[in-house]
Nucleic acid binder design. Structure first.
Length: 275
DNA sequence: TGGCAGGCCAATT
DNA sequence: AATTGGCCTGCC
């Protein structure tokens, strides 16, 4: 694989792909992760020395992927927020070294997290992939045909039965309505960028199928609001069992980042099924 | 092999 | 304002 080599041992595509914030990153072989995003397909190879080889030019890396993976940010400063006596978080940030909060597209996040309700991560991946295959723009890559995430116009005009065939179940009307709201200007995703976090979440909550958990995920992963903490069953367990009902105030400004480390650790290691 | 999954809605108190 | 049943269906 040819491309641009990025030297930074605090960036791991494999860890990010399993961290539950994106659904189109897959490991294709040992140490190689593939991603479909921004209408393109990208592969990343993690080298022994901690560097990552991007299957793109240096120019493309600097123009978009660097920002997409939040590589301008120093995550050491987020990990340093961990309080000295918070051994659980210290363990979690060490375990999750290489995590980044990606700058993903708000539209894709909104639809993906509407789909996510009452689904496991593998099931979400399946559904998003089917949706992209059915309604997304196909494009040729050196690895074969890939499918961009569908545009709002395409989903707004979709046949409900064809949507249902993507394992969307009772979420079909939610997706259709949201797509139509975006197409017909009732929901302006770009305009929302200028709103405060509180107003942003308030607007997202107006959509059917969007509750506080989904709205929080969209704010954090689609609008990069790093202070937002999506509380799902895993975070609920952590907040209850480890923090006695509330995260320390000190974590507030970057609680979303802290959350990502805690969530990742709890789900993949710490509190996994009854051990 | 049935339960359960990274919730939300609507009806009911 | 808070509680509860029902919902589609893939995955372990």
């Amino acid at each position: 694989m040819e491309g641009f080599r990025f030297v930074n041992d605090d960036f791991s595509p494999a860890v990010i792909g399993e961290s539950g914030q994106c659904f189109r990153m897959v490991t294709v072989e040992e140490g190689v992760t593939e991603l479909v995003a921004l209408g393109e397909c990208l592969r990343l190879r993690e080298e022994e020395d901690g560097s990552v080889l991007f299957s793109c030019s240096e120019e493309d890396f600097n123009n978009k992927w660097k920002h997409y993976f939040d590589l301008d940010n120093d995550y050491e400063k987020y990990r340093a927020i961990a309080l000295p006596d918070d051994s659980y978080l210290r363990e979690a940030v060490s375990f999750g070294r290489g995590i980044r909060i990606l700058n993903q597209e708000s539209w894709e996040m909104l639809i993906s997290f509407i789909i996510s309700q009452r689904k496991s991560v593998p099931a979400i991946r399946t559904a998003v992939e089917r949706l992209s295959r059915s309604f997304g723009r196909p494009f040729e890559t050196e690895f074969g045909m890939r499918y961009a995430f569908p545009e709002p116009e395409r989903l707004a005009a979709a046949d409900p039965e064809e949507l249902a065939a993507c394992s969307l179940g009772y979420r079909v009307p939610y997706i259709l309505e949201t797509a139509r709201d975006v197409c017909e200007g009732r929901l302006e995703l770009t305009t929302l960028e200028s709103l405060s976090t509180e107003e942003l979440i308030e607007c997202l909550l107006k959509e059917k199928g969007v509750g506080i958990k989904v709205a929080s995920c969209v704010a954090l992963f689609g609008y990069h609001r790093l202070d937002v903490v999506p509380v799902d069953v895993w975070m609920k367990r952590v907040i209850e069992n480890v923090y006695g009902g509330e995260l320390p105030r000190e974590y507030k400004p970057y609680a979303g980042v802290i959350q990502q480390y805690l969530f990742n650790y709890a789900r993949l290691k710490g509190l996994n099924q009854g051990q």
